[in-house]
């Protein structure tokens, strides 16, 4: 402990000094990390590249913005073969990020759970269990519900609620895509 009592001016000077040093250190760190973040963002590519990489429309060779907010047109060469979108929907704990691909009749071609914050070990199976998301492929708008509700999607046992949110999210995203396209 300092024995000498500082004057108000000294206290102000010291506080300012420490704050200035802190600011300088943080500025330097920001510069370095921002560079790395830019690199990460570049590696991930824009939404069209990300959709292509996830393979939600398996035959697509290129995604192009459909002009709307979230819908992207999927092309195989020059032919329009479907649509893809990636967005946040409500999950059980927090928002889920889902990517959904459909063909031109809005039959699902692929679903990917991009990120989720569901209960570890329980709800997070929606992301880890690929057999669950694989079920969506080939299902038309009528079948998009859990099998307990008369649909074609079997919920993961022990993660029924989260499975339900994924299914509802897929329906929601397809609805938005239809709206934007038509």
């Amino acid at each position: 402990m300092a024995e000498t009592k500082d004057s108000t001016i000294m206290i102000l000077v010291k506080l300012t000094l420490i704050a200035a040093v802190a600011a300088a250190v943080l500025t330097a760190t920001y510069g370095v990390t921002q560079e790395q973040l830019d690199k990460l963002a570049e590696a991930a590519g824009g939404p069209d590249k990300q959709l292509l990489k996830m393979g939600i429309v398996p035959d697509a060779t290129k995604f192009k913005s459909a002009g709307g907010e979230l819908c992207y047109e999927a092309y195989n060469g020059g032919d329009l073969i479907g649509y893809g979108a990636m967005t946040e929907v409500q999950g059980m704990q927090d928002m889920l990020t889902l990517a959904v691909g459909v063909d031109t009749d809005f039959v699902v071609t692929g679903v990917v759970v991009v990120s989720q914050k569901e209960t570890p070990g329980i709800g997070d199976k929606i992301q880890k269990d690929e057999a669950f998301t694989a079920q969506f492929a080939g299902v038309g708008p009528d079948g998009l519900a859990l099998s307990s509700d008369g649909g074609k999607i079997d919920a993961i046992s022990g993660a029924t609620v989260s499975s339900g949110y994924v299914t509802a999210g897929v329906v929601e995203i397809i609805g938005k895509m239809q709206e934007e396209v038509s």
């Binding site: 300092a2 500082d6 010291k14 506080l15 420490i18």
Partner: peptide, 16 residues
Amino acid sequence: RKQIPPDVRIPIFILI
């Protein structure tokens, strides 16, 4: 610790 004025030590700790 010898430079930190005792009156404002908590704000300085928080700042650090």
